[in-house]
Amino acid sequence: MTVKGFGPPNVGLGRKVMVFPYETDFSFVALIPQKEMGLRAFTLCMRVATELEGEQQIILFAYRTTDYDEFNVWREKDGHVAFYLSGDGAFFHLPPITTFRTSLCLTWESRTELAAFWVDGHRSTYQLYKQGHTIRPKGTVLMGQDTDKHLGDLETLQSFVGEVTDLNMWDYVLPRSQIQALHYGHKITKGNIFDWATIEYQLNGNVMVVDDD
C-alpha cells in the first residue's frame, strides 16, 4: 500500500542504513509490504541502534489499519521490549538496545501462541500470546513514529532516534538456524513481506538514507 501524498516509493536499501537524527513529530519512513499483512504468524528482524536512554518509550515498528494499532514494537520506559497486537502487550526483559547495533528478531504464531524475541542470535524465553489472533491487512507500516490514528497524531516523545538497517519480515516463523545465520550475515530465504535489498519505502521529514560503512 503506497502512502498517498508522499510521492512515488523508493526501491531497495541493500547496504544502506536509515538514520533518524533527532526527535520530531513529523519524520518517519513508510514501508510498503510485498504482500498484504493479514498475518497469523510472522518473523520480523532488524538491526537497530539508539542513544536514547532513561525513562522514554521508543517506537521500533508500527503497523496500523484505519481503526486499530495492529502490530507495534516498543522499547518501554522501564527498559522492557514489548509488542502489541490490537490490545495488551507481551513484555520481555532483554539486553539493552544501545549505540552499538543490536540484531533484533521477533517471532509469533497464532496457532501455538508462542512468541519470542531473538537478540544477536539468542532466543528469549517463550511467552504465550494471542492464540487464534489474526493481524488485519490493508494498513500502513511506519518506522520512526507511532500513529494514534491513521497517519496522524504523531508525538515527539515517542519518536525513534538512531539507526535501522537490514529490516526483513516473513509471514511465518523462521527456524533457529536461519535466524542465527541472518545475525551472522549469511544469506537466507528472502523476506516475503519485506526484503531490505528490494524494499519499497517513502521518506517523510528529516530521515537520512546513507551507505552502511
Rank of each mutant, 00 (worst) to 15 (best):
L106K: 03
Q131L: 07
I97E: 02
I58W: 05
Q131T: 06
P175C: 10
G144M: 06
F83S: 02
V11Q: 12
Q202A: 08
R64Q: 10
F6W: 14
G14T: 06
A30R: 09
S86E: 12
L167S: 06
L154V: 10
T198W: 07
F92N: 00
G139C: 04
V173W: 02
V17R: 08
T147W: 10
K4W: 06
L167F: 15
F83E: 01
L39V: 11
P9K: 03
Y184Q: 12
V119I: 13
T125C: 01
F71E: 00
A41M: 05
R101V: 07
F117A: 01
L85T: 01
R64S: 07
E109K: 01
T189S: 14
T112R: 01
F28N: 05
A62Q: 10
S110R: 02
D69P: 03
A30I: 12
N72M: 13
R123H: 07
W196T: 05
Y129C: 01
E163T: 15
G185V: 11
S103G: 14
F61I: 10
G79P: 04
L203G: 07
F42T: 01
N168K: 08
G205E: 10
G205L: 12
S110Y: 02
M208E: 14
S103V: 03
W108A: 00
F42A: 03
L167G: 07
F42N: 00
P33S: 13
L31S: 09
K149D: 13
M1W: 10
G14H: 10
L44M: 11
M37H: 05
R47F: 11
Y172T: 12
E163H: 13
Y184I: 06
Y22W: 13
V173I: 13
V11H: 04
V164N: 07
Q202C: 09
T50Q: 08
G79I: 03
M1G: 05
E109Q: 06
D166W: 08
T107V: 15
